[in-house]
Design a binder for these strands. Structure first.
Lengths: 360, 360
DNA sequence: TTGTAGGCGTTATCAA
DNA sequence: TTGATAACGCCTACAA
């Protein structure tokens, strides 16, 4: 049993014990070059015995590659972001990267700059930018700052020339939800949006609007109320909507917590879902199936978004490393799916199970 | 404007431009020693102009300290773990560490070993082990393996001699919930547990049991049903419970999704909460206030658990670094709070707002 | 107040 | 098939 304190064994110690040079040990560790079997075995025995672990810092220094990715995220305690980070971590792990997690609470310019400096200092090989696009918080991309950074992939933002983006097709998701309500015979469909400073919130509104207009239905401003993603804003929004437009027969809430709040409001005001009002949410959180009534919602492949982002990043890193010219930024939209449950059906169907419809 | 590709500027370049030695630049960067103001300014100008960022890999190599912490987590897409990770990240950031995130999906022995090797190879300064204690998945601590690792703090596990632990007082939390139900006049109180392989699940059951016995009430096995944290298991569990013990008048579900499932079940079987059955959950997820009826639940300071863990780890790292003998492992239990809403009140109180009671 | 030499642990180059 | 030597970028010790 190795008695040394952790991580104090170096190549030299292994080399001495095996009676070979450091370079030979290095070759064994990295599986490169031809090595006589006997030597190899001796070296491996020494490695085992001493519990040697190569120092990744030293390797990174000389190889000019840290095998580290960074994810800059926001709202990790929300369902969407945490799912996405799970995907990012899984794919990073599979590709042999370690992942640095950085949370950005208030994304003011100074904090961002400081964070980017840290990432550069640590020589991360790539960055996944998983902060939602809110207001002008992406202004800094404009500069050539981005060319002084390692490869970077953006999540959930408006595709822009010159940068790689992976996102859910929020607009399509909202369209699926709205079209579904229309197909169920609903005609006056309200909307509870996310904060409209968010790109994703605006996209979902656009999907709703386009679908209504496409079906020859009204999409007036009085059918829209702005929420902040929280259940309480959904509750307030629903009440407001019913006050303004007592005759609406459906509502599309742009995430599930707001839909939950809406259901609460509907119940409190003595109405019934789905009989009087059909409700559809967005995100399809695991609990949605257990709301009263079970909530129809739009499923997004969040884990896949994360995985794909890392894959794209990896390709870019490899290309960069080989000196190939930028293989060109990529923009990818992933397709959501409609998950139908009781809350949006034409009438109460007590035994109805979840049905799923593929997007487009 | 610096035109160089990112991160290719070194101390030497700065030194040349400023006309000083590398060491002087190093001193300016690290703010150590006395430096003439004029030199300092010249150096800083060069740093700015070249966009110099010290190479953290090289620093780590020579300082024998990476300023990196690792968190090994599980179930990041659940509410509890993700909140905790948020706390861990915040505190790490405040103390100047970068945080490596590693997710352990199936914690088999081999994966754990491989992961630990990675962490050692990367020379992380400390580890936060945020994987719930399930079955024998902590067996490997027994060995002196842990002494070959950097300082490590465990979350949510049974306190053990020789290791630092930070956890919520699950037993007290369950006791708060149960005592609250008793105080509301309930007498036959069922329990839907988490998977009993989990230490936390067993603790919550113990809190329920102790409270009932302490109040002279029955805590028989037929009042207990085992769930798996999911809403669907809560639904099934509730149905089972009502079949076995049709006269129960309350149920404590050991997390909020299971409580949600239970509410669904109660409703489906034609009973009413809280009139016929009072319900209390655990975790106090943000949506709990919008269930039908609004769910009473046990709040746990999850972010604080994460922050505290990092603080403890930091203290240990600093002590180690100064060569002080192990300042002794610490075990801390944080106190939960009962959050009362409609689901557990004696009768329907439509206008009742949330009330909060401090633990103990 | 500033500079020089040496080393941190690894890999690359080139020679043996 | 193997080994000496020189980087990688930074910091510590010691001099100047």
């Amino acid at each position: 049993m190795p008695k040394r304190r952790f991580a104090e064994v170096t190549l030299r110690h292994v080399a001495e014990r095996a009676g070979v040079s450091m370079k030979t040990v290095s070759r064994v560790v990295n599986n490169q070059g031809e090595i006589r079997e006997a030597t190899k075995v001796r070296v491996q025995e020494a490695i085992e015995h001493l519990g040697y672990q190569p120092n990744a810092l030293a390797q990174g220094l000389v190889r000019r590659r840290s095998n580290t990715l960074a994810v800059v995220a926001w709202g990790l305690d929300y369902y969407g972001p945490s799912r996405t980070v799970v995907g990012i971590e899984q794919q990073s792990d599979e590709l042999g990267y370690s992942l640095m997690l950085h949370l950005l609470c208030r994304p003011d310019e100074m904090r961002v700059t400081k964070l980017l400096n840290t990432l550069v200092a640590r020589r991360v090989d790539g960055i996944v930018w998983a902060v939602p696009e809110i207001g002008e918080n992406r202004a800094w991309i404009a500069g050539d700052l981005v060319t002084q950074l390692p490869p970077i992939v953006f999540l959930s933002m408006a595709p822009r020339p010159g940068v790689s983006v992976v996102a859910n097709d929020n607009r399509l998701g909202a369209a699926l939800a709205t079209r579904h309500l229309i197909a169920q015979g609903r005609r006056r469909i309200g909307l509870i949006t996310g904060p409209l400073e968010w790109w994703e919130a605006r996209e979902r509104r656009a999907g709703w609007e386009e679908s209504l207009i496409g079906a020859g239905l009204e999409a007036s401003a009085s059918l829209v109320v702005e929420g902040d993603w929280s259940a309480s804003s959904g509750e307030r929004g629903m009440a407001q909507l019913l006050e303004r437009q007592p005759d609406i027969d459906a509502v599309f809430a742009c995430n599930d917590p707001m839909a939950l709040g809406a259901l609460q409001s509907i119940h409190r005001l003595g109405r019934q879902a789905p009989r009087d009002l059909a409700v559809v949410g967005f995100d399809n959180i695991p609990e949605a199936a257990y709301f009263l009534p079970p909530l129809s919602s739009v499923y997004q492949p969040l884990v896949d978004v994360g995985r794909l982002a890392v894959q794209v990043l990896h390709n870019q890193i490899e290309a960069d490393q080989r000196g190939e010219d930028h293989s060109g930024p990529v923009a990818t939209l992933l397709e959501p799916q409609m998950v139908v449950r009781q809350s949006s059906l034409a009438g109460p169907h007590p035994g109805a199970d979840a049905v799923s419809t593929r997007g487009n």
